[in-house]
């Protein structure tokens, strides 16, 4: 059997058949795996939130270890006492608040409308933590994370992640040595909610100064670092009216 593969009609038919086969194959893959993927993403979010408030399985100085996937749902219920949705002056409770997409809500806020902002209230060792989801831009793509504050508006832990920052440079925002620096910093300067700046040349590589609203930047990752600063500032700004009502200061 020999086919004349140079004929135009053959080319068109071949392309059409190929598109149908590939299209249905991918659609089938996507719909059959959708639930599993969604569940994995949900667990990951719970792990990230718990990590920010200090519930993790870190053993040494070096690496990030989350609560394991099989335990995470239980731990999440234990530590997260309340899930709030803040809509303007209205505050309501919602058990699925943590699944709210911050990207969409930030876009709504930018248009000048009222966003639905999720805020998680956690409790650990008798202390209350307010965990704020964040979303922003790095150098190449999205960055996001969670910041856990206590009643004095001091950072008790953060978690950052990114979609496609440069490995070895911007991607290091999810390394322990960078995230740990935030712990103990205050987001307040006087009475103002200024957030925390990722600063170059703050002459504090060991991060001993905890009252300067600054952490040491990553070398070679200026734009990602600026993105982190902007992301913290923007999110704090959205939540500051609510935070003022719970702040002990």
């Amino acid at each position: 059997m020999s086919i004349n593969t140079d004929k135009n009609s053959y080319t068109v038919v071949f392309a059409a058949v190929m598109v149908v086969i590939v299209g249905s194959l991918l659609a089938f893959m996507s719909s059959s795996l959708k639930d599993r993927i969604a569940e994995n993403e949900r667990f990951e979010k719970q792990q990230n939130i718990l990590y920010a408030m200090g519930v993790n399985e870190n053993v040494d100085e070096g690496s990030v270890n989350f609560v394991s996937t099989d335990k995470v749902e239980g731990e999440f219920k234990t530590y997260i006492k309340k899930q709030l949705v803040i809509e303007g002056d209205q505050v309501s409770e919602d058990d699925h608040a943590y699944l709210i997409d911050m990207k969409k809500q930030m876009a709504i806020a930018k248009k000048g409308e009222t966003p639905k902002l999720p805020l998680l209230v956690g409790e650990k060792d008798g202390e209350t933590f307010y965990i704020i989801p964040m979303y922003g831009k790095g150098l190449w793509d999205a960055i996001w994370g969670f910041i856990a504050l206590d009643k004095t508006m001091t950072v008790r832990g953060v978690y950052f992640d990114h979609k496609g920052e440069t490995p070895g440079l911007g991607a290091n925002i999810k390394q322990r040595y960078f995230m740990d620096d935030f712990t103990g910093e205050s987001i307040l300067k006087g009475d103002e909610y200024v957030g925390i700046t990722v600063a170059k040349g703050n002459n504090d590589p060991l991060n001993n100064e905890k009252d300067d609203n600054e952490v040491d930047a990553l070398a070679g990752a200026t734009i990602t670092g600026n993105g982190v600063s902007a992301m913290i500032k923007e999110s704090i700004n959205l939540y500051k009216d609510y935070l003022k009502t719970v702040s002990a200061k």
């Binding site: 086919i3 593969t5 053959y10 071949f14 392309a15 190929m18």
Partner: peptide
């Protein structure tokens, strides 16, 4: 069976 005219696109797919 790949038509030579669109082989690059086929490879890409």
């Amino acid at each position: 069976i790949i038509p030579s005219k669109i082989r690059i696109i086929v490879q890409l797919i």
